[in-house]
Design a protein around this nucleic acid. Structure first.
Lengths: 151, 151
DNA sequence: ATCAGTGCAAAACATTTGCAGCATG
DNA sequence: CATGCTGCAAATGTTTTGCACTGAT
């Protein structure tokens, strides 16, 4: 699956998109975008804050939320609420290359990404039958990971 | 789709299940179960509180949360967090008769239920390929309802 | 130099928990 | 009549907002 190449191009794309929409891209905003572009799967606001602090690029909590909100508004990131009460965010790939869904361990919160072309096809077909246009979708599978089910 | 019949049988089933698990079914608990059994789609804790107050059967907020938690624990209701930061709850049909998913209007929170047998089939197939057993799933489609998109 | 962006602290929000009294089985 | 259930109020944890200051363009 697309690694560093598509990730860093996402960071560029995000910066360009912000500039095109009349926003600035410096400071904390660039920092958060860079962190997100390095991730393979969704992160919570708190995890983002901790990761940035660890890497020496501390950003205020409120700024993180504001930045994520703006990125979600521009469809550059996807906000996920998988039933844990904590929102997670991950980069949205406009070309759909890295489009995927999640298997969540209900006990420990562990997240496993997966993708399936037929699933996408069926969702597309179903979407066409609904009363108003569908802009996006999420599929969340629930289970207990090996560590938790062996406990 | 199963209307009053399966709904009222769910209320009975829920009561029996509680009793079998050693819990009592009177008072607030019965009230919440009755309200849930009358719904066609998911309700938030706040909506449940308001609905009960309107119908003259007021139940404390904490009790509502505790009851919903217990019902979810017994797999009698499903807890949904569709990305709004507010959890919603709906009855879980053990036979799968009323199994459905949701189209959510991201602007006003309007919820439209839908179901599709092929979607279920594909999800079942995908589930078999994942690293640990899948106990359940949710599909959420996002869009803007007619009222919101015309605004 | 200007105005958006940022950080801090306090507010708002849904949800959870502690405890005293009440009602179910 | 004993134990679990309920309601209230306070606590918790996440997310949002107000305001003064900083920094990108």
């Amino acid at each position: 699956m697309g690694g560093t190449t598509s990730a860093s191009s996402w960071a560029e794309h995000a910066g360009d998109r912000l500039a095109a929409a009349g926003y600035r891209r410096g400071g904390a905003r660039r920092t958060v975008i860079e962190l997100l572009s390095e991730q393979e799967c969704a992160l919570s606001a708190h995890e983002i804050e901790d990761a940035l602090r660890s890497s020496g690029r501390q950003v205020g909590r409120a700024s993180i939320y504001r930045i994520l909100e703006k990125l979600a508004e521009l469809d550059l990131v996807t906000k996920l609420d998988l039933g844990t009460g904590i929102a997670r965010y991950e980069i949205a790939d406009p070309a759909g290359r890295d489009h995927h869904h999640h298997l969540l361990c209900d006990d420990c919160g562990d997240l496993v990404p997966f993708s399936d072309p037929e699933l996408e096809r069926v969702i597309g077909r179903v979407s066409g039958r609904l009363p108003y246009p569908v802009r996006g979708h999420e599929v969340t599978l629930h289970g207990s990971c090996d560590s938790c089910s062996h406990a």
